[in-house]
Amino acid sequence: MTVWLVVGGVVQVGLVLLLAPLFEGLMRKLVRARIHSREGPPIWQPYYDLFKLLVKEDTQPAAGWVYLLPSVLCLASVLTASLLVPLFGRGILGEQGDAILFIYLMAASVAAVVLAGAMSGSPYSSVGFAREIMMTLTVEPVLIMALITAAIDAGSLDLGAMAAWHSAHGPSLSMLIAAFALLLSVQAQVGKLPFDVPEADQEIMGGPFIELSGPKLALFKWAFWAKQLVLAALLVQVFVPWPTFTLGLAGSAALGAALCALVALVKVLVVVVVVAVVDAVNPRLRLDQAMAYFVAVIFVAGIGLILAFVGT
C-alpha cells in the first residue's frame, strides 16, 4: 500500500509539474494571443522560460539556504495539495488529509509569497506582501466557505466523500453557488488579472518577487501554474463531478477511469480558459476595489453556506 502511495504520488506530482506549463502555454498562445490579435509565443514557451530561469545565475542579497525556503515551500505545498484532490474517487493522500489540510496548504503557499516579500528590503516588495496579506484576508475565506458548504452537504470533511456525494446526489443550489464563488476566487488565488494586485508589474514591479531571480523565480512561477491546475481540478472534481463513468460503459473499469480522466481534463481546461479570458479582458483593480469585490463574493458564498445548512 505504501509503495502504491509513493509510486502514485510521484506520478501525479510529475504529471502536475509537466502539465502546468503546458496549460499556461496553451492559454498564452490560443487564448491571450488570439484575443490580442497577434501570433503569440510557441506553446512550449513556459517550458523554455522555466529552463532558462532554472539554469540562470541566482543572485541573492546574502548567502544561505533560508532564502530558497519560500519558493520551495510554495511549490511543495501546492504539489502536496494536488495529492489531496480526488481524481479517481479519492486523492492519493485522501486517507491522510482532508479539506482542512488542503486549506492549510493553500494558505502555506500564500505565506511563502509573503515570506519572500518580507525577506527583501525593497519598498515595492513591502507594499507587495502587505497587499498579498490583505488580498488573502478576503480571498481565502471564499475557498474555506466553499469547502465548508460541500462538507455540510456531504456530511464529511473528506474531499473524496464530497465528490462522491455531489456525483451521487446531482446538482444542488448550495453547491452551484459555492462552485461559482470558488471559480471567482481562483482568479485571485493564482495571481491573474484583474486581481494580480500583489504583483502589479506596472505599479510595484512584481511586488514580493521583485528581487527574486533564476531558480527561485522559476519555482514560484511553476508553483503558480500548478496552483491554477490544482484549484481547477478541485473545482471540477469536488463541485462539478459529472458526468461520471465509474460504472464503466462496457463493464470495463479501466475504460471508465480513462474516460473519467479525459472528462476531468476537459473540465479543467474549461476552467483554465475562463480564467485566461477574464485575465485578458480586464484591467487591474486597485486593492480597495478588489477587496470590495471579494467581500461581495464572500457574501454570495455565505448564501450558499446558509442554503447548505437548510439542505438545498
Binding site: S37, D196, Q202, A280, P283, R284
Partner: peptide, 16 residues
C-alpha cells in the same frame, strides 16, 4: 494607459 492598468488587450487592439 491600458497597459499601465494591466489591460493589455486594449493595448494590443488600440495599437492594431
Amino acid at each position: 494607459a491600458a497597459h499601465i492598468l494591466g489591460f493589455d488587450t486594449a493595448l494590443m487592439q488600440s495599437w492594431r
